[in-house]
Design a protein around this nucleic acid. Structure first.
Lengths: 213, 213
DNA sequence: CGTTGGGCGTGATATGCATCACATGGGGGG
DNA sequence: CCCCCCATGTGATGCATATCACGCCCAACG
């Protein structure tokens, strides 16, 4: 992948001078699918901009239960990395590449400098927070108010959108883990969805036919 | 209340020049207990800094169910107001004064200007986001992982801390609404807490004796 | 080629909580 | 002073989901 032109395309809103600097100082890091970018307790040293792929950001408790927070896509940035980096704090979250992924790491020192210098950077940081916050609220809504069948539909829609594909290669066990449920329950709900014609079940894979809102 | 000296005490980290400006342009607004500062769908025109009192920030769905997000205290700011103001968007949340409350409203135009000019303002905005984000994650954890009895304890602890008082004057009906439960269930759980000696129940009031973590 | 393990389907049962139905008791207004 | 409203207590019942127990299928691998 031609990272330079890619960066330019993804971050058009940056002033030319800022864009140039981003390309100069940003460290490109690649991650394989399933690889962890960040784990609970780990120190964060740089802000992360996504160039390619999808990153799942989630939270895990002591017993290994997880809560999905949101996915990050090209052109987006990790809000957590920004604040934690800025204050040298450790993160309380996990981040994992869903597919092969490429990110740009911006050293923390520059973040502050840029914020004071480039309006577009400051706007970008704010916008990053705003969107992550909204996404987190959306997640909260679903967990608080929706039943598992609706949350499963939501899960499928998220993945369809993030992966830009109607085929989701995940075991029911993993889906259950992500929704804080159990395999058996997901199995039964999936069967219902299949009966209603929303999905088609394959071995180790769910095909999304049409998910009405 | 002497607002000027109060502002100074609460926002010591601001550069003197910034502090002066904040005092000059900030509009002091007072709210009575139970009054709403912000409602879903309402347009936000200014960033809100809390001077005195406690503000409950929460989300409400179509059917009137609510999810508690976090409380705001003196010296803190509403992250939502900052981003929404900056982008002229409407909020998706509700904010309500728990007690008589005083806030400082900063016109949106100045936010951007200050961010480029004062390092301490930028830091403050970032820190505001970081803390709200963490609090929201904590809430998410509780809703996702904890049973109602633990969430009730958490609710009591939050109020104890926010109100700096061991007496919570709220009906079980209201507590139930906030925890997305029902009066009857709260009633039974409270009885258990009382039996264990954690609380003492009075008419229209809960006295917190000791809440062990 | 048999064994093993992982992913899945399905019934039975348990549990946490919501909901319904109704009782009690106190406080304020007519 | 009586009545009624409101906060609360409590049993019965129902629903969504978790958990347990078991069996099936298929693929990998010795």
């Amino acid at each position: 992948m031609a990272t330079a032109s890619n960066t330019q395309r993804l971050f058009q809103q940056f002033e030319p001078e800022l864009l140039k600097k981003v390309q100069q100082v940003g460290l490109v890091r690649k991650f394989k699918a399933e690889e962890y970018l960040m784990q609970t307790g780990q120190q964060i040293r740089s802000a992360v901009l996504v160039l390619d792929g999808v990153i799942k950001v989630f939270r895990e408790d002591d017993e290994g239960n997880e809560v999905f927070m949101y996915n990050l896509h090209p052109g987006e940035a990790c809000a957590i990395s920004m604040t934690c980096a800025a204050r040298q704090l450790s993160s309380q979250i996990m981040a994992k590449a869903l597919v092969d992924t490429e990110v740009l790491a911006i050293p923390v020192e520059l973040m502050d400098e840029w914020a004071l210098k480039y309006r577009s950077w400051y706007q970008f940081v704010l916008e990053t927070y705003r969107s992550r916050f909204e996404e987190l609220l959306d997640t909260l809504d679903h967990i608080a108010f929706r039943n598992l069948d609706e949350r499963l539909l939501w899960y499928l829609k998220q993945h369809q959108k993030s992966l830009k594909s109607n085929f989701i290669k995940t075991s029911f066990t993993d889906i259950a883990l992500e929704l804080n449920s159990s395999r058996e329950v997901i199995s039964r709900l999936m069967k219902k969805l299949a009966e209603k014609g929303h999905v088609k079940l394959h071995k180790n894979e769910v095909e999304i036919l049409h998910l009405k809102m």
